Amino acid sequence: MIIDNVFAIGVMSGTSLDGVDFVYVKFQSDNYQDFEIMHAKTFPYSKEWKQLLQNAIQSPKKEIEDLDILYGKYLGNITNQFISEYQIKNIDFIASHGHTILHQPEKGITLQIGNGQEIANISKQKVVCDFRTQDVKLGGQGAPLVPIGDALLFSDFDFCLNLGGFSNISFKKDDNRIAFDICPVNIVLNFYANKLGLEYDDAGKIASSGITNQQLLEKLNSLEFYQKEPPKSLGLEWVQKEIFPLIDGFELDISSILRTFVEHIAIQISAIIQNNSNVLITGGGVFNDFLLARMEHHSNCKIELSSKKLINFKEALIFAFLGLLKVNNKINCLKSVTGASKDHSSGVIFYPEFLKQKF
C-alpha cells in the first residue's frame, strides 16, 4: 500500500555544538521535492553537555560506550519534549544523526553516539540512525551524507554549500554527484570566540576589527588537505592536529586570528564557487556577515540567502530524508561522494522494546 504522505522527525547535532536541531517534516511519497518543514526547533546544549561532548574524543572506550547510552537517553527525552511542545500526532519514524565523537575513515573508524535503541524506547517510535558506519566499512569516507538530499531535494541549484562546524559542498559533475568537506568554519571560529567568553563572533564583528596575518594565511592555505582530490572529509582530530597548533604558534590577538581564519575560509570556498551565484548556502555560518562579504569579494558573485528555516535546519531535514530512503531500502549514500565501493542504503533501524515483545 502506498502512503501519500510520510511524517518524520529529523535530529541533527553538528560539530559546532550549538545544540540539537529538530525538524518535523512532511514528505510526499511520489515527489520528494514536495516537502514541508512543519515545525523546527534547536535545543541548546547545557555547559555540562558541551564539555562532555567536546572532551569525549580523549575518553577511554568504556566511558564512550556509557556516554552513547546516556546521550541516547538525552536525545530520547528532548525528542519527547519536541513532540509534546508541538502536539505532534503522526510520526512514521525518527531519523537521528547522533553526535560525531571519532571520525578517522582512513583507519576505518567513525563513531556517532546517541544510542538508537534508547531513543526508540523513550520516544516509543521507530528510529533510524548510525548512517556513517556502513559506508566506512565499504571503504568510503562516511561523509558527507547530505549530497543525496541535495541531489533529490535541491536539484535547481548548481552548488549546495553548508557553513557549519565545517564547510562542505555538493554539485553535479558529469552526471555524478560530487561532494566533499572544504575547510573548518565554526569549529575554529567559535573555539577562539570562546576564549573571549563568547559563544561565537556575532556577525563576524570581532573578525572585521582584526588584521590579516599574511604568513599565517599562507600556511593555512598550503595545508596538504587542500591539495587532495575528493572524496575527502574532515574531523575534529584534524583540526586539533593541524589547525590549532599552527594558529597558536603565531601568538596573535583573537581578533587577528578570527580575521585571518575568515579570510582563509573565504579563499577556500571561493575557489570552488567562483563566478556562480546559483548557490544554496545554509548552516550557522550564514549569519556571519563579515564571512559572507569576504566570500563575495573572493568569489566575484552575489550571495542570495534562502529562508531562515532552511538555513538553520537543512541538515536535520536531510537526515529525515536519509531515514525515509533507508526505511524504503533505497540508496541514500553515493559512492561518487564518499569513495565507497558501491552506492548503498545506509543506517540502522531500531524499534521500541515494547513493540519487539509483541512478535
Score class of each variant (00 low, 15 high):
residue 31 N to G: 06
residue 93 F to N: 04
residue 357 Q to N: 14
residue 213 N to L: 09
residue 100 T to Y: 05
residue 318 I to M: 00
residue 270 S to N: 11
residue 189 L to V: 12
residue 206 I to H: 01
residue 290 F to Q: 08
residue 317 L to E: 03
residue 245 P to N: 08
residue 183 C to E: 04
residue 42 T to K: 10
residue 355 L to I: 14
residue 353 E to P: 05
residue 168 N to G: 02
residue 320 A to M: 10
residue 205 K to S: 13
residue 289 D to C: 11
residue 341 S to T: 14
residue 239 V to A: 12
residue 29 S to M: 13
residue 67 L to S: 06
residue 10 G to Y: 04
residue 256 S to L: 11
residue 192 Y to A: 05
residue 158 D to H: 05
residue 75 L to H: 03
residue 278 N to A: 07
residue 45 Y to G: 07
residue 166 F to N: 01
residue 305 L to D: 06
residue 21 D to S: 11
residue 173 K to F: 07
residue 242 E to V: 07
residue 281 I to P: 00
residue 121 N to P: 06
residue 167 S to K: 05
residue 266 A to C: 09
residue 6 V to E: 08
residue 39 H to N: 15
residue 31 N to E: 13
residue 47 K to D: 15
residue 80 N to P: 06
residue 228 K to Q: 15
residue 338 T to N: 01
residue 44 P to N: 13
residue 111 L to I: 08
residue 206 I to T: 03
residue 10 G to I: 02
residue 66 D to K: 13
residue 303 I to E: 07
residue 290 F to N: 10
residue 188 V to W: 01
residue 59 S to T: 08
residue 145 L to N: 01
residue 192 Y to H: 10
residue 242 E to H: 11
residue 17 L to V: 14
residue 76 G to K: 02
residue 33 Q to Y: 03
residue 251 E to W: 03
residue 68 D to G: 07
residue 278 N to S: 12
residue 171 F to W: 00
residue 93 F to D: 05
residue 51 Q to H: 13
residue 328 N to E: 15
residue 316 A to W: 00
residue 88 I to Y: 07
residue 296 E to G: 09
residue 288 N to A: 13
residue 352 P to G: 07
residue 325 L to N: 04
residue 165 G to E: 01
residue 302 K to E: 13
residue 325 L to R: 12
residue 191 F to R: 14
residue 349 I to L: 13
residue 281 I to Y: 02
residue 284 G to Q: 06
residue 316 A to E: 05
residue 331 I to R: 02
residue 128 V to P: 03
residue 168 N to A: 02
residue 256 S to T: 11
residue 219 K to H: 14
residue 143 A to W: 00
residue 267 I to G: 03
residue 9 I to A: 06
residue 30 D to S: 11
residue 183 C to L: 07
residue 21 D to M: 06
residue 227 Q to I: 06
residue 112 Q to N: 08
residue 67 L to Q: 05
residue 260 T to G: 06
residue 60 P to F: 08
residue 137 K to T: 13
residue 108 G to V: 09
residue 231 P to C: 06
residue 202 D to Y: 15
residue 232 K to G: 11
residue 177 R to N: 01
residue 227 Q to P: 01
residue 152 L to D: 00
residue 267 I to M: 07
residue 292 L to C: 12
residue 328 N to V: 03
residue 44 P to C: 09
residue 274 Q to N: 15
residue 91 I to V: 15
residue 170 S to Y: 00
residue 1 M to L: 10
residue 339 G to C: 09
residue 10 G to Q: 05
residue 180 F to I: 01
residue 196 L to H: 10
residue 302 K to M: 10
residue 28 Q to T: 15
residue 113 I to C: 09
residue 229 E to H: 12
residue 68 D to H: 14
residue 316 A to C: 10
residue 188 V to Y: 03
residue 197 G to N: 10
residue 31 N to K: 15
residue 93 F to A: 03
residue 317 L to D: 02
residue 307 S to A: 10
residue 104 Q to W: 07
residue 285 G to H: 04
residue 345 S to Q: 08
residue 238 W to G: 07
residue 103 H to K: 09
residue 19 G to I: 12
residue 340 A to M: 03
residue 209 S to Y: 11
